[in-house]
Design a binder for these strands. Structure first.
Length: 587
DNA sequence: GCCGTTTTCGGCCCGACTGTTTTCAGTCG
């Protein structure tokens, strides 16, 4: 059976290809509409089908970027599994646009030419055409463009595309630190999806201001971690690092830092909306500043520079507050910033304790004491020990007796430790029927009860939802750990009705977890936003299995920020004492 | 094709770099 995640990705592909075909044939404006819709569908995943199930075409049209025509196509897709307009397009142009367009440097015009002159329809066709050196015979193509295409193809086959934020941040920090030491460099920061703290990033975007741009660019392209140089210009250069990710550097005068940082932070849609807003107010915006727009004989020309030194002054001039980078997606943050109702996002460094920690009682690497000391060292003042339960036999999960024995060790440690509190907890397995893997009596004795799913990921949606709802209804349960069970790049999210689960969490005052172990990032930003809107408390946990994992906390704070969460939405920003009081009262 | 604190019609972001060119098209971010 197909999962609905697959279904929504198929739909995203269809919308993408329709738009891409229009772009090839020179149809104006439609491509952008389809592209936006495709991105929206991909980002929503299961939820697009949920919305359609509940509200049909009308619910689809309520979404930003979806109007009558695209809503009808989505409706047709969910009803029949097909989109007629798409099939007709495919008859005219039977090309695997989706795959070919993923090749770096290969755009709509070239894909069109490849089919027109060489009948290239697939990646396999393209390989043949390259091998026989026919590509260079296409008008306006030459030896170099053929080589570039060959490189792009090889690259795509080798790399998976996106990288986990947690893995890339340390590398970006290292580059920033190195370039900052180059003589004449005034400022050097990372921008792009890194600054927006997206869960995965496609590349490393860097921005520097310097008196001598060439010096920085040289230092950048000569970094030991650079494998090859894509391009090197006066203000922009781009390289591939040995680990396989690309890094881009922009160098501008210090006086325009704010405008360039704004531009280079994105995201793309946010910038497009901002520039449209600028136009409507008689300005034009680019990476060098906000300029007055002069109109002469119907022609618009750039006039005097207004502001460019900081991001804040640009947004202010456009009548907005400055959205934190994590909120810049080209959506709701635009109106919120105009209406001065941006949320007061949870500041980095707010989390005081980690409420999901595994030890060597099960599959963690270290003792309870070692984990506690590491947590304390990384600035935390409490943690909950949450080892697995017996259903996870292969890690030696604990039963009622095991949990009780562990509790005694924790009591002893708490007498010994100063300025740090260990809560007795569990990561209790949710069994097939929604019952829990420890007895209610054992659970009731614990300070902190998290429940989670580690089996039967593919139950039918209805059954999976019922299973979770039953588990969360147990009065001993405090938190739902890594709710969707996804592993980025490894495992799809399990299928359940998020609205119903959130309603249950609300009813029984169960917190939802933001598990910030990098490949989990679960809940993800969009789900956090749903939970915050519903008034459900959240916790940020690292799911640490060894002492160095506590550094992931800031990744979880980033997810919370992307989900519009404030400090009061997150339970473990409280002190241990306050949290324990809250939990007692709740039960 | 979408959208509306100028608009239900008439708008729709902007610049750098590359390659193949004699002034620009294609791609990217």
């Amino acid at each position: 059976m197909k999962t609905s995640a697959k279904t929504s990705s198929e739909l995203a592909k269809i919308l993408f290809e329709i738009g891409y075909f229009d772009e090839m044939t020179g149809v104006p404006f439609k491509p952008r509409a389809y592209q936006l819709a495709s991105e929206l569908v991909a980002a929503l995943g299961n939820e697009i089908k949920d919305a359609w199930r509940k509200g049909g075409i009308k619910a689809l049209k309520d979404m930003p970027g979806i109007g009558q025509s695209i809503a009808e196509k989505i409706d047709e897709f969910f009803r029949t599994g097909k989109v007629r307009a798409y099939q007709e397009m495919k008859k005219k142009f039977p090309v695997d646009i989706w795959s070919l367009s993923k090749i770096e440097g290969l755009g709509p015009k070239h894909i069109s030419d490849l089919y027109k002159y060489l009948k290239v329809k697939t990646l396999a066709d393209l390989k043949k055409a390259l091998a026989s050196h026919k590509v260079r015979t296409i008008p306006h193509w030459g030896e170099k463009s053929e080589e570039k295409l060959q490189r792009g193809l090889g690259l795509m086959e080798r790399s998976s595309g996106r990288w986990l934020l947690g893995n890339v941040l340390p590398i970006a920090d290292e580059i920033v630190s190195t370039l900052s030491k180059v003589k004449g460099v005034k400022r050097c920061v990372y921008a792009g999806s890194l600054r927006r703290k997206l869960e995965t990033v496609g590349d490393i975007d860097l921005l520097a201001t310097a008196s001598d741009p060439e010096k920085v660019t040289d230092a950048f392209t000569k970094l030991t971690m650079v494998e090859s140089i894509h391009e090197k210009g006066k203000t922009r250069s781009s390289v591939r690092l040995t680990i396989g990710i690309d890094a881009d550097l922009r160098v501008v005068p210090d006086t325009v830092f704010g405008a360039t940082l704004q531009y280079f932070t994105g995201d793309k849609r946010h910038n497009v909306l901002l520039r449209e807003l600028a136009l409507s107010k008689g300005y034009t915006l680019n990476e060098y500043g906000l300029f007055r727009l002069k109109s002469k004989d119907g022609e618009h020309k750039r006039g005097a520079l207004i502001v460019c030194k900081t991001e804040e002054e640009i947004y202010k001039k456009l009548g907005m507050d400055t959205p934190p980078p994590e909120l810049r997606v080209g959506g709701e943050e635009m109106d919120a910033a105009r209406e001065h109702r941006l949320p007061n996002l949870i500041p980095y460094g707010s989390v005081r304790g980690d409420l999901q920690v595994q030890t060597n009682w099960t599959d963690g690497s270290s003792s309870i004491e070692e984990m506690a000391l590491a947590a304390k060292k990384s600035g935390l003042s409490f943690m909950a020990v949450t080892d697995h339960t017996k259903a996870l036999a292969f890690v030696g999960g604990l039963d009622d007796n095991g949990v009780a024995r562990q509790g005694k060790e924790i009591d002893n440690l708490n007498k010994k430790l100063r300025g740090f509190t260990i809560l007795k907890g569990t990561e209790c397995d949710i069994l097939r029927d929604g019952s829990l893997d420890l007895s209610d009596k054992a659970l009731a004795k614990l300070d902190w009860v998290g429940v989670s799913i580690h089996s039967l990921f593919n139950l039918p949606r209805k059954q999976q939802t019922a299973r979770i709802v039953k588990a969360l209804s147990n009065p001993n349960v405090d938190c739902f750990f890594h709710p969707t069970c996804r592993r980025i790049g490894k495992r799809e999210a399990i299928d359940f009705d998020m609205d119903e689960v959130l309603a249950t969490a609300k009813k029984y005052r169960v917190a939802m977890e933001i598990d910030c172990y990098p490949d989990r990032s679960d809940l993800r930003d969009a789900h956090v936003k749903m939970a915050v809107k519903a008034g459900i408390k959240l916790v940020i946990d690292t799911d640490a299995h060894s002492p160095e994992h506590f550094r992931f906390i800031s990744l979880g704070e980033a997810i919370a920020r992307r989900g519009w969460a404030t400090k009061s939405d997150i339970l473990n920003t409280r002190t241990a004492k306050n949290l324990i009081g809250y939990l007692r009262k709740k039960r």
